[in-house]
Nucleic acid binder design. Sequence first.
DNA 1: GCGCTGTCTGTGACAAGGTCACCTTCACTC
DNA 2: GAGTGAAGGTGACCTTGTCACAGACAGCGC
Lengths: 220, 220
Amino acid sequence: MTDWITDTPSLSALSPASKARLGALQPMALPRGAVIYRPGDDVTGFPVILSGRIEVFLTGAGGRELLLYAVEPGQTCVQTTLGLLGGDASYSAEALCATESRAIVIPRPVFLSLMDSDPAFRQLVFTAFAERMGGMIQLMERVSFQSVECRLAAFLCNRAEGGRVQATQSEIAAQIGTAREVVSRRLDAFARRGWVHTERGAVEIIDAASLRRLALAEGL
Amino acid sequence: MTDWITDTPSLSALSPASKARLGALQPMALPRGAVIYRPGDDVTGFPVILSGRIEVFLTGAGGRELLLYAVEPGQTCVQTTLGLLGGDASYSAEALCATESRAIVIPRPVFLSLMDSDPAFRQLVFTAFAERMGGMIQLMERVSFQSVECRLAAFLCNRAEGGRVQATQSEIAAQIGTAREVVSRRLDAFARRGWVHTERGAVEIIDAASLRRLALAEGL
DNA sequence: GCGCTGTCTGTGACAAGGTCACCTTCACTC
DNA sequence: GAGTGAAGGTGACCTTGTCACAGACAGCGC
């Protein structure tokens, strides 16, 4: 019944007392596409994701989207940590289930008490926070200093499974923070160079080496 | 001799034991323009700024710069927290003194021990971290979804002192994350509308209301 | 004063990217 | 087999970033 605690590496270091408190919580199942929260929602608890993948997006005025970060098992959501510890108690971004997922939600009072009493829990939250911040700074660097072509190539390399990337052009655009039309044109350019082959809802990678070279061309 | 502890609001909540340990540290004076760290430097301690203002910039390949955040008295540097707690122990950004400043540097072992022993110190570091993260997300939003014109207007409104902003166009460009030439052209457009008057090294605000209206036009 | 020097600013030309409008293609359903 | 909605392609246009270069200005030494 509470085997999810031992199954989740980042939780196994917690003190027995903490585990006992968490053991009372029920994991919940989330289908793909489920909305975890929207901008303006109140932060009521601290989610810990046990399996699956949650993606957190920023949405601009024109509906354009930008992937801020993804939350995978053992990681935590900064937006939430921020809401529970800092001033603002509402979200400024939107979180969606990228795959079917399971998660528990630690209620705010329990979270705050664990933060005070369990150094391991603190460590968990803090390092997650630090890693996320580092990721945000890198994202900043990519978004403001790298070309779309470069970001697209990097995305295709990272997301390729068996030489294919399963994603619509709109999805790709949101992941790298550009407009769908731009993705369409860039992919077309790649295809003309013989690097990829595009199809509806997917991109087939033909020349991964060239893509990787381009991805690395403009610094990290 | 250790009056800077009581003079700095955020430090006054610390436990007496923590204060005693910090009391042994010597504040250091930093002239305007001093480099606190550069990308790649090792993180050796945790700076707490007592007076003045430190600005942290990201630098792109072409030399273009972007202000990530500013550190003012009582605030802390995320880049450093990140280095001391997370994986990476080196900086990815550059920090400069925007004004003459005083600061102490808490050595890494002292920092880690304070984090474990003093809840008030933890609270201080954590809320600073949370606020900074919130700021970073907002910055992300502005940089990727707002027009330069809008960001420039907002900058002029925020930085105006007595109806003037004392800064070169290069400095303004770095603060809002664009190129100098673009600032030149946008300021020129503002001037033609009669909103500002530009001079060497400064901008005089004539119609603050119009600027503010524009700054708020594209969402927060 | 006079010229030198480095910084600050203006500008034209061009490339890259974002926005808008509209159309085609495709998968699915009834 | 027509209808529907999502996905993808394309041209026009504007904003932004980049490059190259020139003019303006302040400070300095003479």
